[in-house]
Design a protein around this nucleic acid. Structure first.
Lengths: 232, 232
DNA sequence: GCAATCGTTCGGCAGCCGCCGAAAGGAAAC
DNA sequence: GTTTCCTTTCGGCGGCTGCCGAACGATTGC
């Protein structure tokens, strides 16, 4: 049988508050330096080093040495999804009603954010819903891109056919949004969509966090392309 | 932000080998008594009690007191999926090549098993593939039941329309098989399919484990219904 | 070459946590 | 009522682990 110790040691990687905070920070899909993570989690650099070792040994993170810096990031989309799944479970449970302070601190994240490499939050859900209403996405039972949706990505959004050629990674996948409790578009198509939105300046990152903001240009684009008028 | 401590405490529930073994055992979807789990994980009954408390408090398990017995089981399909996802990640990593002994001990489980409430293992993957070839299931990009597939469930397999009326639970969902590294059918349809197979005597449980065996009747049924001739 | 910065290694400390056995509570069997 | 069985509570032990500071190594900049 699947050795219980293997499962336990994987879970143990996330069972520490500092390591969990590191992984949540890395959910933005970017590479952080060891020092940045140490400061972010408020532990000594030496402590951060130990945690990063464990996370890398466990296969959750990959590293890239560059000069005197050590960059780490999530080792792949599947890891990001695992963490999101766990976080979704936590948020779904209506335990310990958060104080007002935490709620307002959350509001930017709730409005819009990136989830590893695709759009999430209210913005991500709104885009997904609009695509479904427009017949680009089929959510009955599963979560699949329609032929019209595929054409929309290439013809309207300007993606090249290679961009949306499905490889090992599924083209369209639902990702449960822990703030909205609804599915939003993930998978290869979700990543490319997010890439396009950022590249076109339709959304911009708020500071260095995962939170994103819709620009006036983005608002216009959503209205023209998807008939979305009242986002946010 | 999602509090890292919440994520950590959820992961901590599975970060202990004994608790992990309990959850893996409970993946069969059935209810176990506290004593059974204690014996299965080889710890003192008092130790098992503590673990069960934590798992129940954490919302992973639910309990049902019945006379002097205390039955526990996974609190729902979403918990089962979370555990399967974690287990899948463990198995995908080609670390520590298992010895021959463990491999043969695994063979029954690899051939066929239940995964919470649906079929998994080679059998589950074979059925899923056959359904896809027959046009009952659409795996391009997502994982959805076709209209033909829906009709097949009701007309050929004899399910009532209410059985496959999608509620909150998705009708068809892919579940990554950790032994076969392929998707198999989960979700409501997967559960009903498994129920039917067990009810018709097409598959039977091996002992009290999660492993299942295809009966001669089942073999014939698979050949007639799905054109599957060489299962196993 | 020297200084500054980033990361790592090493010891040591404190706290948590999983384990057990003994004793007690409760429900069923007789 | 008594016995038996399943489960729980409690105390205590041992080990693991996360934390830090100090010293060291490595890289960049001056």
């Amino acid at each position: 049988m699947t050795s219980a110790s293997d499962l336990a040691s994987l879970a143990a990687l996330l069972a520490d508050e500092t390591r969990a905070a590191m992984c949540l920070a890395l959910l933005d899909g970017r590479a952080w330096t060891a020092g940045e993570l140490a400061a972010h989690t408020r532990v000594a650099p030496s402590t951060a080093t130990e945690h990063l070792h464990r996370l890398i040994d466990g296969g959750l993170l990959v590293e890239r040495r560059q000069g005197r810096h050590r960059y780490v990031q999530l080792s792949g989309a599947s890891v990001a999804q695992l963490i999101e799944d766990l976080a979704a479970r936590v948020e779904r449970r209506p335990t310990s009603p958060r104080g007002l302070r935490a709620v307002t601190a959350n509001s930017a994240l709730r409005r819009g954010r990136t989830c590893y490499d695709h759009l999430a939050g209210r913005l991500g859900v709104a885009v997904t819903d609009a695509m479904t209403r427009a017949g680009l996405l089929d959510q009955t039972g599963g979560f699949a891109l329609t032929t019209a949706g595929l054409a929309w990505l290439t013809d309207t959004l300007g993606l090249s056919p290679e961009d949306v050629r499905t490889s090992k990674r599924p083209l369209a996948r639902g990702c449960l949004d822990w703030t909205e409790r609804q599915q939003h578009l993930a998978g290869l198509a979700g990543a490319k969509l997010c890439e396009t939105f950022l590249g076109n300046g339709w959304v911009v990152r708020i500071g260095t966090s995962r939170a994103v903001k819709l620009t006036p240009n983005g608002k216009a684009a959503l209205r023209d392309l998807l008939g979305l008028s009242d986002v946010k």
